[in-house]
Amino acid sequence: MKQILGIAVIALLAGILIFNFAEKNKEQSAADTDKTAVNISKDPDVKGAAIVSPGKSSIEPGQPAPDFELESLDGDTVRLSDFRGKKVFLNFWASWCGPCRIEMPEMQKFYDEHKDEVEIVAVNTEPNVGKARNFIEENGYTYPILLDKDMKVANQYAIFGLPTTYFIGTDGKIQQEKKVGPMTYEFMTETLHSLE
């Protein structure tokens, strides 16, 4: 009986030791992950995060929006700086992106009503221009569509999810936190009034 009791106590102590070791490793792993995990939505209630490679982060409010040059769906060469002096919603999207498809009719309605106050610059991030062109033509979207076939500009703006929108003021600087996920008409109207 003493032998069985002794073996049980040893097994219990070994179990406690293994459990504590596993918990310590889990805590260390979580701490290491927190160094590279970023809540890209800026919403403290959102679940999940994106892993950001070292040195790669989004452009924060107050920073100048990096200039770039892309071809438009119409074949013109367009620079972001062409819109200097205007408020700009710089939106990254793709035709295969479900949330983008939800957002785009809202953006069109907003653009139809506010194009004198703000420019929507929609940067398509897929390599197949034909898919983007068909999608835009089928749905009748009229705001400027730029083509980022190699995702150079998306990488420049640290885009990790689609759709993502940056809000640029007339001074050429980012003026609000970026929005990851689809925008509603109401959200766009409220954000427009917050830009200078």
Rank of each mutant, 00 (worst) to 15 (best):
K2D: 07
K2Q: 10
I4F: 00
G6A: 15
V9H: 11
I10C: 05
L12V: 06
L13S: 07
A14F: 02
A14N: 13
I16G: 03
N20H: 03
F21T: 04
E23H: 13
K24Q: 10
E27D: 11
Q28P: 01
Q28W: 08
Q28M: 11
A30I: 14
A30L: 14
A31R: 09
D32Q: 03
D32C: 01
T33S: 11
K35S: 14
K35L: 14
V38T: 09
V38E: 11
V38H: 08
I40C: 10
K42W: 04
P44D: 05
P44C: 02
V46F: 03
V46K: 08
G48L: 05
A50Y: 06
I51C: 04
V52E: 13
S53M: 07
P54G: 15
G55M: 10
G55Q: 12
K56V: 11
S57A: 14
I59D: 09
E60K: 12
G62N: 08
Q63V: 03
Q63A: 15
Q63P: 02
P64A: 14
P66C: 15
P66Q: 15
D67E: 03
F68C: 13
E69N: 10
L70S: 12
E71W: 00
E71S: 01
S72R: 05
L73W: 04
L73N: 10
G75I: 04
V78Y: 01
R79A: 07
L80Y: 00
D82G: 01
F83W: 04
K87Q: 10
F89N: 08
F89A: 10
F89G: 08
F89M: 12
F89R: 00
F92I: 12
F92C: 13
C97Q: 02
P99M: 15
C100V: 12
R101Y: 06
M107A: 04
Q108D: 11
Q108P: 02
F110M: 13
Y111S: 06
Y111V: 05
D112L: 07
H114A: 09
E117W: 00
V118G: 10
V121N: 07
A122P: 00
V123Q: 02
T125L: 02
T125D: 06
G130R: 11
G130I: 01
K131W: 01
A132V: 04
A132E: 12
A132S: 09
F135L: 14
F135E: 15
F135T: 12
I136E: 10
E137M: 04
E138C: 14
N139L: 11
I145T: 10
L147A: 06
K149N: 10
K149S: 14
A154L: 03
N155F: 04
N155K: 11
A158Y: 08
F160N: 10
F160T: 09
G161M: 09
G161A: 15
G161N: 04
P163Q: 12
Y166M: 12
F167A: 11
I168C: 02
I168K: 00
T170M: 13
T170E: 15
D171N: 14
D171L: 06
G172T: 10
K173E: 07
I174R: 00
I174K: 03
I174G: 11
Q176F: 01
K179E: 14
K179N: 13
V180Y: 08
M183T: 03
Y185S: 03
Y185R: 08
E186G: 07
F187E: 15
F187Y: 05
F187Q: 15
F187H: 12
M188K: 03
T189E: 13
T191L: 03
H193T: 07
S194K: 07
L195W: 02
E196N: 12
